[in-house]
Design a protein around this nucleic acid. Structure first.
Lengths: 204, 204
DNA sequence: GACAAGTTCAAACGATCGTTTGAGGATACG
DNA sequence: CGTATCCTCAAACGATCGTTTGAACTTGTC
């Protein structure tokens, strides 16, 4: 087998990197297949079309990411001693771990792009497939912030998730001091983001 | 003269709308000139190239926006009684007023796109031409938040500006209740954003 | 070795892209 | 009226786009 896995995986990896760098329209299938070291026709053979490829790029990471987010949320959800910071950690930590494990920091950039693009097709896809995740987090936020009106709560969650996605898309590109381990740097970033988000959510 | 101003203005307006909706790559000059009701060749005649047009779309709004931001900042900067909220208002209010005055809410979407794209060419252009604005705001934030380390401060400003740009790009698309005037709705949004940003910036 | 199914390949398809061209219309000044 | 300047127009340029095709190659099974 070629270096770096099956043809499908190599295409997905190259697509993730190029979509992050140049966008969905900006990255051509010729650049993509050339970077992946596969034939041009391989994309349409394995995925059907470029649009289906985009969808699979999202699915591959989001399935795992959201499963982990929900698992982490389940551990703290509903408990009497749960703090706002615990829920935020369940949202943030899996994403930053994704950035560490593999080239996943590139995927967070793809996700941030999708967030800013306001593309209806993409938003519908994300909402239909992963909307239940945000709904569960929203319910838990509502429980921990009883003083906020529904309107105000939605507002702030929108702000926070947008800010966090944008921030996490930059993670991995930040040059860190060499004497700080990746693990420590990630934990430090997590704490920064949690503190920031908690303050914004619970602002008086 | 044709309905909606000169050819140059009509192109800029159509470009702003289409760039917001489909992105710089996704919007073609044929869609653009067709929407503007001008000839295809008019873009290259008046602007030189598509890239130059993109640049002018930014310049037209950012020159005015940043002038207003700096003027608002100058009114509160350095004074002993100045609060964090006043500085944030100088940053936020001009942008939301831009959204009101004309089709400028579309431009905030273009700006949010540029924020998420991490495109080096665009970031360099923005930094070279408008970097002094953020530097002045940063200096004032540093004065009002003496407890934060430089590193921590930059971190939070990055988070806040990203979140605010993203949030303001959504402003104008939010359906508001009809009995609330545009003016009141904008002021309410401004207060929401200021409260959120102030809390995030000064989190303990 | 023979056959079948799965995969890769070079080449080409029509469509659309940004840009250029040269002729022609519009406008202002002598 | 003549002419110079600015602008618009239809048409075409070469390049690149996503996609399709049919032959060649690989792999597993009998």
């Amino acid at each position: 087998m070629n270096p770096a896995g099956s043809t499908k995986e190599r295409i997905l990896n190259a697509a993730e990197a190029l979509f992050a760098q140049r966008g969905f329209d900006g990255a051509s299938l010729r650049q993509l297949t050339s970077a992946a070291g596969v034939n041009l026709a391989a994309v349409n053979y394995h995925f059907g079309s470029k649009d289906k490829l985009v969808e699979q790029v999202f699915r591959r990471r989001l399935d795992a990411l959201n499963t982990e987010r929900l698992a982490a949320l389940a551990k703290v959800s509903g408990a009497p001693g749960t703090r706002l910071e615990d829920v935020l950690a369940a949202f943030i930590r899996p994403a930053l771990e994704l950035s560490h494990d593999n080239g996943g920091s590139l995927f967070m950039r793809v996700l941030a792009r999708a967030f800013a693009e306001h593309d209806d097709t993409l938003r519908t896809f994300l909402s239909e497939n992963y909307g239940h995740v945000m709904r569960q987090f929203t319910a838990e936020f509502a429980r921990l912030l009883p003083g906020l009106s529904k309107e105000e709560l939605y507002w702030r969650i929108d702000l926070v998730t947008g800010a966090l996605t944008l921030a996490m898309s930059g993670f991995g590109m930040i040059r860190r001091r060499d004497n700080v381990s990746e693990r420590a740097h990630r934990e430090q970033t997590t704490q920064h983001l949690i503190r920031f988000a908690a303050a914004g959510l619970s602002a008086s």
